[in-house]
Design a binder for these strands. Structure first.
Lengths: 233, 233
DNA sequence: ACTCAACATTGAAAAAATTAAATTCAGCGA
DNA sequence: TCGCTGAATTTAATTTTTTCAATGTTGAGT
């Protein structure tokens, strides 16, 4: 079990109004007086790479807003194969299924250093009761999650392994805050794209040789978008 | 443009309470008095195979509950490739995205004969305003759509072409009302599984040779589940 | 019965991906 | 420094998939 660090724990939600990504977060449009009536702990937590937010089958009493970093959602199949079905980034919500009282159908594991806002289901539920804004926000989260799933199928599970890797790099580039982005292990890339580790390695090595992909430090990289774009189709 | 046949059109929603699949449908738990206040047309429509419910980019004022038959959701990519991202069956909802006011990101096209219940967005919106049951029903639709998308990725976009075809047949079998199911064209199977038409044809032909798959009539088939199951992994 | 068009099947060659094994490389602790 | 370890890469053999082209099959319409 990896370690976790609780930076700050707040009674109530005073912190939310000064949250740097509030415009992206679940409570974006919730009026202040709604917060004032809520006095439940909303924790701001930092996780290191490889931490499990929850596992397939878990029944967790939280949802998580990703404040920074990347989280992979992976499903394991009976035969042991695993497939990463989505990668969440800043502003995305993890654990939506839990709100409907269903057990998780996937693992959620941090890829790099991740900060999340952990919100008890009970808070969401009680706010949802009388906040149409939150209703809308939740529906929009579902919408964007589904849209992301579609993209995952059409862009990252289709075409040759090279195209898939190229599209994955573009995807990671687009969702990054700065001009570099987190480069997953070849193993994870394979699980994201439905190809073997070796195929992922071959494609990334080729892009690096051609200078379209440059590694920066340990786990980060940047790409030449104009050069890589043609390789996507 | 394909033809459509309007079996019955109803002013108001009197019909809903006697709907045969109401337990599966969107308005399952809506109290009768809510219906009585609504007087907008909810149409019961039959489509023949190949009819487009809506196309990518459309901004439609309806959602559709599938009463019978199958509907494919397909995304087209810039290079012209298409990928079927999901197949909807009885009780599923098509056009959810429209509720959030977003244009459709996919085509919805009937595979076989399909009957739908076409509900104006405005009806859903006005009912949603004061019906927590409908809120719940909508969230659950989103949930099951997302869960289906995950299944699509892990089961139908992973592994060898034979496994994918086997899993698709199992999937179609499970969702069928009777013991036969609609067998898509090899072309559509390819688009569902991310493989070529020929690969889909070879796999289905092999299963037929082995007697694990039997065609029944034109577009329908049945499988020997016990024989086919091992081929899924 | 004939024709046409759409769909399905098949075979052979080419291309691509997977498997397996070996190698390089960087970081880490003794 | 040395050896260890995990990750990434390389290589070669094998398997799978795609491509391309030809051949069957089927049903609708004449």
């Amino acid at each position: 079990m990896k370690q976790k660090t609780i930076e700050q724990a707040w009674r109530g939600a005073e912190r939310c109004k000064s949250c740097g990504i509030r415009h992206l977060a679940l409570f974006a449009d919730i009026p202040q007086e709604s917060f004032d009536r809520i006095h439940l702990p909303i924790d701001d937590i930092t996780f290191e790479p490889g931490h499990r937010l929850y596992l397939q089958g878990d029944d967790i009493p939280f949802v998580f807003t990703i404040r920074s970093g990347l989280v992979k959602l992976a499903q394991r199949m009976r035969n042991g194969d695993r497939r990463i079905v989505r990668v969440l980034g800043q502003g995305d919500l993890a654990g939506l299924e839990g709100l409907e009282g269903l057990p998780m159908d996937h693992d959620a594991i941090t890829l790099d250093h991740v900060t999340v806002c952990r919100i008890p289901k009970s808070v969401v539920k009680s706010l949802r009761r009388d906040n149409p804004e939150l209703h809308m926000a939740l529906l929009q989260r579902w919408q964007s999650a589904l849209s992301a799933a579609n993209t995952w199928i059409t862009q990252l599970s289709t075409g040759s392994s090279k195209k898939r890797v190229a599209r994955l790099l573009m995807f990671l580039h687009e969702r990054s805050v700065d001009d570099t982005f987190f480069l997953p292990t070849r193993d994870d890339m394979g699980a994201m794209l439905g190809i073997t580790t070796e195929s992922a390695s071959k494609a990334t090595a080729e892009f690096k040789r051609k200078g379209w992909l440059k590694t920066v430090g340990q786990n980060r990289a940047c790409i030449d978008v104009d050069e890589l774009a043609p390789a996507c189709e």
